[in-house]
Design a protein around this nucleic acid. Sequence first.
RNA 1: GGAGAGAUGGCUGAGUGGUCUAAGGCACUUGACUCGAAAUCAAGCGUAGGGGUAACUCUACCGUGGGUUCAAAUCCCACUCUCUCCGCCA
Length: 427
Amino acid sequence: MLDIRRIRNNPQEIKDAMLSRSADFDITLIDKVIELDERRREILSEVEVLKNKRNTTSQEIPKLKKEGKNVEPIMEEMRVLGDKIKDFDAELTKVEEELEATILRIPNVPSKNVPKGQSDADNLEVRKWGEPTKFDFEAKAHWDIGTNLDILDFEMAGKVTGARFTFYKGLGARLERACINFMLDLHTSKHGYTEVLPPQIVNRRSMTGTGQLPKFAEDMFKLEGLEYWLIPTAEVPVTNMYRDDILDASQLPIKNTAFTACFRAEAGSAGRDTRGLIRQHQFNKVELVKFADPEKSYEELESLTNDAEMVLKTLGLPYRVVKLCTGDIGFSSAMTYDLEVWMPSYGRYVEISSCSNFEDFQARRANLKFRRGPKEKAEYLHTLNGSGVAVGRTVAAILENYQQADGSVIIPEALRPYMGGIERITK
RNA sequence: GGAGAGAUGGCUGAGUGGUCUAAGGCACUUGACUCGAAAUCAAGCGUAGGGGUAACUCUACCGUGGGUUCAAAUCCCACUCUCUCCGCCA
């Protein structure tokens, strides 16, 4: 959520920022916010005078009574005043609700350092690690490799659940688990994150806090009859851990890592990436979440991105880092780096991690503050997160990049301790 | 699922209709005392919003949402969460 005063004071700056995200952005939303804000303050100044009158008069009444005066006319006057206040308050509530609903649908302002652009074609490659894997045989896609080795079963999942779900079997399941453990161990022992295992179902306030609600309700799974949602990412529960809290500056940065399943309805992506592990309704992910001092949040974004990259480096998977342009960054983000792994079946790099600085956008929504010192005013902190990394896509990348001519797959060395020393998956 | 108890400022804890404008304590900040510290004493010390150049001032907030009343932390209704016990259960 943007600071209402920022919108009030620099409407044009905000409008330009929104248009840089999308030329189609409805900038009347900004005007609406400004109007509602003005109306709100108008009502406020009127009703507060009346409330002051009521308060002072109500305090007079017992004194006058004690003096034996007839207070009935005053009480009658107060009854009328009370009704008036009630009307104003009702109007105020209406305006405030509309203001809130509107402002919650306005995305974050991209950071100054974000390249201008309209789509992923305008993203900026910032670095590259490794070279696209070359094969001296005809390389297969991971869905074929996995099916042939009988470690992935898409049909079975289709029967049991439906499209976009997968059964992992045998060493496939073991490989997924090995990746999870490897990533968690790396981030906790080498990068200083604290492991958390959060709830995978959250309430409305949590979903609003990180920005999934109210705008993206159709992308998520909601439990029938309850105000509960399956999490689309561990970002949601982990960022909301300290909602409504005031942390001490000495605690920052807080660095948490969490493994969870993630659930996405993927509304609007029918027909895209229909095969394999790339786009599923349920997938596993190890997430990195940071709570940072605003002055250091961009340094923290760099190190968080490096932490995620270390996963791919250690697994020997070729990747590149891309800085997303204004047209491609997510709703809540001020700046995002995507990590893209080389996926032979796609013949291109595919997103495997998204590392973002949200600045104070989520902190405002979730009321997440910190205090620099005992006498200091509480300030909104900055939140960041990134995948460290998506597990299903990692498995897909391993299967494809480490496949052999005979259909077997070599296990990356770093994972072997987690695989009981197994070096290769064969038929 | 059933029964009971509870939710008040950073923490603790008093408060059952009108100086609650939320006591007291702890913690914290500043000052005094001290070479310094502890102890002691004094003052300060919540959040959000409105108005004002400012000093300041007004409004709201005692789990949440309604209601009663001239007036609600206090009375009424609903809900949420926490704790205890019972039942069921991995």
